[in-house]
Design a protein around this nucleic acid. Structure first.
Length: 298
DNA sequence: AAGCTTTGACCTATA
DNA sequence: TTATAGGTCAAAGCT
């Protein structure tokens, strides 16, 4: 595919962009289905139906730490992944870690990075890793955008809304205990018509959200007033508990795009969502939580 | 009554 | 080819 500028991508159909970007795949790497998958019948699965990105500012590339603080959800690249055991990000090549002296030393980069990308890990030991996650993500943003087919974002619990409500409506369609994690995963779909966005919320036994994985972007703007259609949009309400310490958020836009601009499209959506969490809808969350608690107490 | 959660079964991908 | 794991479906029950 021909080179596409950031503005071109913004001006064009998001779906088309994703289709074209298939040519940007890293040779020999399947990326575990984050690229579009098609069934034997040729019908695209949900992963192929990447919604068009919303317009964003190209200035997203000039990411600052303050931006990060405003945006609890960031995108990392396919070459960045938190170690499932250490919680640290491995890196390839140079990076800007030096910009963040408080972070730990980078972990050795696994040689099979592409295969490792097929898995999305949460921060298992997030209690110890909260702070180091921030700068590492930023470094990833700065260095690996061109490999953004798999992007994972892990946000420390204190930066994630206490209930992980992102302003969209979510309906739970499944729950599963997965092997690689002690915690069950809850599967959510966006309730907006024709929206293919999904998210997976991993919740610890104590009710804390340990990981959130976003799959696919929304093909619609977030509701203006973030009025939640129902309580289903509150992963924090899993098991009827209030959750205050989700440990990580993983943005896993599986679109086939290698184009950094698209990755930012996605992240921008999420950033907007989480921004609202900390701000405008905070009180609403509180009210709904209280209402729910009242009901449970009755 | 509508929309949601729950949960076991089923499907698909991967090793 | 088979076993396993992850993801999704869909019926039933709940709010």
């Amino acid at each position: 595919m021909s080179s596409t500028s950031f503005t071109d991508l913004l001006a064009s159909s998001g779906v088309d962009c994703y289709e074209d970007d298939e040519d940007l795949r890293v040779p020999g790497s399947s990326f575990g289905g984050y690229y579009p998958e098609r069934t034997g019948s040729g019908l695209p699965k949900f992963k192929t139906a990447q919604p068009p990105p919303l317009p964003i500012s190209p200035s997203s590339h000039n990411f600052t730490f303050s931006d990060f603080l405003d945006s609890p959800l960031l995108l990392s690249s396919s070459h960045s992944l938190i170690s499932p055991t250490t919680g640290a990000f491995p890196f390839q090549g140079s990076n800007n870690l030096s910009e963040f002296p408080w972070q730990l030393q980078p972990q050795p980069q696994p040689s099979n990075a592409s295969s490792a990308l097929q898995e999305t890990y949460g921060v298992q030991d997030h209690h110890q890793k909260k702070q180091e996650l921030i700068p590492r993500e930023i470094a990833i943003q700065n260095n690996n955008q061109s490999f953004g087919s798999d992007r994972q974002v892990k946000v420390p619990s204190y930066m994630v809304s206490r209930n992980s409500n992102d302003g969209y409506g979510w309906r739970k369609y499944g729950q599963k205990q997965v092997k690689k994690s002690e915690n069950p995963r809850s599967y959510f779909k966006c309730t907006y018509p024709n929206c293919v966005s999904k998210k997976i919320v991993e919740t610890a036994s104590d009710g804390q959200i340990t990981e959130i994985i976003y799959k696919g972007g929304h093909n619609h703007p977030k509701p203006e007033f973030t009025k939640r259609p129902s309580q289903s949009s509150l992963p924090s309400s899993v098991n009827g508990r209030r959750l205050f310490n989700p440990a990580s958020v993983v943005s896993e836009p599986h679109d086939q795009s290698e184009n950094s601009s698209i990755s930012f499209d996605y992240s921008d959506l999420e950033q907007k969502s989480f921004k609202s969490e900390y701000g405008e809808i905070e009180d609403e969350d509180e009210q709904l939580d209280i209402k729910r608690m009242k009901r449970e107490g009755e």
